[in-house]
Every structure is written in C-alpha cells, then in structure tokens.
C-alpha cells in the first residue's frame, strides 16, 4: 500500500507540468522543487548535526555566479561549468567549515550570517567580474526552446536534483556517519569522548550540504538567465530553507520537502494576491515565529508522535530514520 501510494506520488510529481493549465504554474513548480531540493540539502547539516546555518544562500549564490560566469564569460559548455563551479563551492565550503564549526550554537549562526553578508558585499563591489547590482546575464544553453519548454526541462532537472539530495540524506541518516552526526546534535563533547571525530564529521556535513545547494544555484543561473546579488546572496533566501525544514520537520527525510511544498507556493500566492508590497516578509516572519514557538519539531514530528509506538522500530526511530 505504501509502495503503491509512493509510486503514485512520484508519477504525479513527474507529470505535474502536463497536469497544470498554464506555464506560470510550471514556473511556480520549478521554484517549489528548487526550494525543496535546497531545504533538504540544508537539512543534511541542520537536521542531522543540529548546526543551524542562516547563510546557505552564500553557496547558492556562489554556485549560481560560478556557473553563470563560466558560461557567460568563458563560453564553457554548461555541464562542465556546473560541475566545476559546484566542486569549487564544495571545496570553499569545506575551508569555511573548518573555521565555522569551531564555534557552536548561536555563534555558528552569527558566522553563517556574516558569510552571506560578506559574499553579498563582494558580489556587489566586484563590478568588473559580476556586473555588480546590474544583473549578470547568462545566455540560455537551450536557446532553441521557448520559455515554456525551458521551464519544463528545468522542472525535471530540479526534480532529479531533489531525488539525489533525498537519496543522499537517507543514505547518510542510516549510516554510522549519520549516527555520529546525530550524536553531535545531542551532545557534542560526549560524542567526541566516545571517539567520534566531531570536527571532521561537521566539516564534511557542511561541505556536502553546500554542494547540493551550489548545484541548485548553478541550475538556477542556467534556468533564470539573470543573477542579482541582492537576491541570490540574501539572508532571507537562506532563512527560507530553515523555515521550510523547521515547518516540515527537521528530523524527517521528507520534512523539508513538505515545508517547501507549503511555503514556496504560499510565497508565490502572496506575490500575486498582494502585489509587490513587503507584507509577504511579515507573513514569512510571523510564520517563522509561530513555528519556533509552537511546533519546533515540525508537522511530521507531530504526526509521528501519535503513531510511533505501533510500528516496531529497529535501531532508528522513524523520526530520525526517514521513510
């Protein structure tokens, strides 16, 4: 039964672009799937190790600008540009991670905010490279396709990315490595005294989590074709990954995806219903406050608490083991 319903859901996700009446809804679908992939990727670090990063948009932006610049300035073929820039960002994240994970809790959050602010400054200040606040234009690698077909293509590319990230999270969460990350989340000194090399674990989680976000950024550059530093390097953008994961449930494989399915369409709806006012920021802010105060474990944790004793768990509880 579970398998059948899962397969139906996957089929529905694949067929979504053909089920909706217009290209705008396909576009909204691309955005939603992109957010879902990013939130799930954020959750490799945030959910498993408990380190909350508000600065993951830095990796999105670097991935986007890296790919965009390689394609636009050097004329590289897009898959190569995407691969090289993603690898570069992951390496960069590992280096930043070595410094960042030396501090815990709220100090770590400060470091991540500082990271994205610094990147934003650099992208705006280094005009000769990035074009500054004048958006960087990235030529579409699929010039033959019209706008709607491009949305369709990227919808499936982002869906593939989402599948890859979900698979990665699931594999990590049920590995000994994932177990070590959870131990870090629960009590870092204790984990260390049991022989878990906590620093290395955290750096790897940080870099892995950045890698998939950078991939999303690269795809975004190719899809959207225009990069504005204020958007891609914004703390708000990074916070949306956190909000989605928290709302859906950080301890669950599908939590961030669920959060994205709620928050991203809601954001688009606000934009249409209320126009270009700033009230959507207030809505996001209030939602974040409410989630933190009343359901910090997220939607799935609530549902899970009700029926967790009926199943016979092995090593993991469903809360941490995913589907």
């Amino acid at each position: 039964m579970r398998i059948v319903s899962s397969l139906l859901l996957v089929a529905a996700a694949l067929a979504y672009p053909w089920l909706v009446p217009n290209y705008y809804l396909v576009y909204a679908g691309v955005l939603t799937v992109m957010y879902a992939a990013m939130a799930t990727s954020w959750n490799i670090l945030g959910g498993l190790s408990g380190y909350v990063s508000l600065g993951h948009s830095a990796f999105f932006g670097l991935g986007a600008y890296g790919t965009g610049l390689l394609v636009a300035r050097l004329g590289w073929p897009w898959p190569l540009a995407l691969g090289v820039s993603t690898a570069g960002v992951a390496l960069f994240a590992a280096l930043v991670g070595v410094a960042a994970v030396r501090v815990r809790g709220a100090s770590f959050v400060i470091v991540t905010i500082a990271l994205v602010s610094a990147m934003n400054l650099l992208a705006q200040g280094w005009r000769s490279l990035t074009g500054g606040s004048v958006a960087l234009q990235v030529p579409s690698p699929f010039a033959g396709l019209h706008r709607g077909q491009t949305h369709l293509l990227f919808y499936h590319l982002f869906l593939a990315l989402l599948a890859a990230v979900l698979l990665a999270w699931w594999l990590i969460s049920r590995s000994r490595y994932g177990s070590g990350l959870r131990a870090i989340r629960e009590d870092e000194d204790k984990a260390e005294s049991l022989g878990v090399p906590t620093a290395a674990y955290k750096v790897v989680a940080f870099a892995l989590s950045a890698l998939f976000v950078a991939l999303a950024g690269g795809l975004y550059a190719l899809w959207f074709g225009s990069l504005d530093p204020i958007f891609v390097f914004s703390v708000v953008f990074g916070a949306s990954m956190v909000l989605m994961s928290l709302l859906g449930g950080r301890r669950h494989l599908l939590g961030p995806l669920l959060g994205a399915l709620i928050v991203a369409p809601a954001g688009e709806y606000f934009l249409i219903a209320l126009g270009e006012t700033q009230i959507h920021l207030t809505a996001t802010g209030v939602l974040l406050v409410l989630v933190v105060l009343f359901m910090p474990e997220g939607i799935l944790a609530r549902r899970w608490r009700r029926d967790h004793n009926r199943r016979a768990p092995q090593v993991l509880r469903r809360s941490d083991g995913g589907a």
Partner: peptide
C-alpha cells in the same frame, strides 16, 4: 544522547 534510541546510543 537523549533523543536517540538506546540501541543507537550503543552504536555511536
């Protein structure tokens, strides 16, 4: 590790 199962605590 309070929010991990007893068995998983053993495997850290």
């Amino acid at each position: 590790f309070p929010r991990m199962t007893v068995l998983e605590n053993m495997l850290v």
